[in-house]
């Protein structure tokens, strides 16, 4: 693998380091069966690293993200951010869901300001809100309400809202899952440029293998029942990453194989295109 201009990523930061140690999480449902959502998850994430979580539905990706966010507590094990064990939600760990979950009663501008208002530091920082609004290109929609926005616009606002607090870690649970293919690729570039300029640690859940390869430093492949880490695949490509590069294809088939979606005995097939 030669010939990429290494633009980023090689040196890790001291802030935004996530340490996941021996996490177990079970959910007891009303029925007799207990769901073992996560089993013995261990993962060290460097500061400023871009991680994607990929795996079949129900393998515990969202559960893991919620644990890192502090919205849920593990049954055993612990997660720490920069050495401090996570006990609850904090503005240091921003969260974006697939559904933008904007507050419908607030305008775009006020949605983005929420983090500052909640921390009582809005005064003097209004400029940051405006800067984020222009970063996501929604100057004309400052005073619009969420129901007036398209899906892509709403998700941009959700991203800006999470970024206002300058979190050390950004947790993204299928943030682009509901968008069309074009908006999606466009947003991937936006997320990359945010990541480059802010050097935030990114942990992103996705179902899209290409998206995982395009964005992340490492792809964490998970498997269900019980949810665990099956394999961690390094993406040693520099950025930008041409989606039609042979290495891109190689990595894609490697990940698909791990997920059991690619069988090696298809190599004889030819289509004479």
């Amino acid at each position: 693998m030669v010939g990429y201009a290494s633009t980023d990523g090689s040196s890790s930061l001291t802030s935004g380091v996530i340490d996941i140690v021996g996490i177990d999480r079970r959910f007891s449902s009303q029925e007799e069966t207990e769901i073992h959502a996560l089993h013995d998850i261990n993962l060290k994430i460097k500061g400023g690293e871009f991680i994607t979580l990929i795996g079949p539905s129900g393998c515990g990706k969202s559960t893991l993200l919620r644990l890192i966010a502090g919205l849920d507590q593990p049954d055993s094990g612990h997660i720490s951010l920069d050495g401090d064990v996570i006990k609850g939600p904090s503005y240091l760990r921003g969260l974006v869901f697939q559904d933008p979950t904007l507050f419908p009663w607030l305008t775009v501008q006020k949605n983005i300001s929420v983090g500052l208002v909640a921390r009582k530091i809005l005064k003097g920082n209004e400029g940051e809100v405006d800067a984020l609004i222009s970063m996501i290109g929604l100057e004309g929609f400052k005073n619009a309400f969420p129901h007036q926005l398209s899906g892509g616009m709403a998700q941009r606002v959700a991203l800006a809202r999470a970024l206002i607090n300058k979190p050390r870690v950004l947790l993204l649970d299928e943030p682009l899952g509901a968008l069309d293919a074009f908006t999606r690729m466009h947003m991937q570039d936006e997320i990359l440029s945010i990541w480059k300029s802010r050097r935030t640690t990114m942990i992103m859940v996705t179902h899209d293998v290409d998206e995982a390869i395009y964005l992340s430093d490492r792809v964490v492949v998970m498997s269900p029942r019980p949810g665990k880490i099956q394999e961690i695949i390094d993406i040693p490509m520099g950025r930008p990453r041409p989606r039609n590069h042979p290495d891109f294809f190689r990595l894609r088939s490697r990940i698909l194989e791990t997920l059991h979606f690619a069988e090696s005995d298809y190599t004889d097939l030819t289509y004479n295109l």
């Binding site: 503005y91 869901f97 009663w105 909640a118 809202r161 607090n165």
Partner: peptide
């Protein structure tokens, strides 16, 4: 919706904020 509270708490909201600025407007 519980996700409003979850998002707000990852934005630094405390309980009074969740009641006054999230629950009440959402319930209006």
């Amino acid at each position: 919706r519980n996700s409003y509270f979850e998002v707000a708490s990852t934005l630094g909201a405390n309980e009074p904020f969740l009641i006054l600025r999230v629950a009440i407007p959402a319930a209006f």
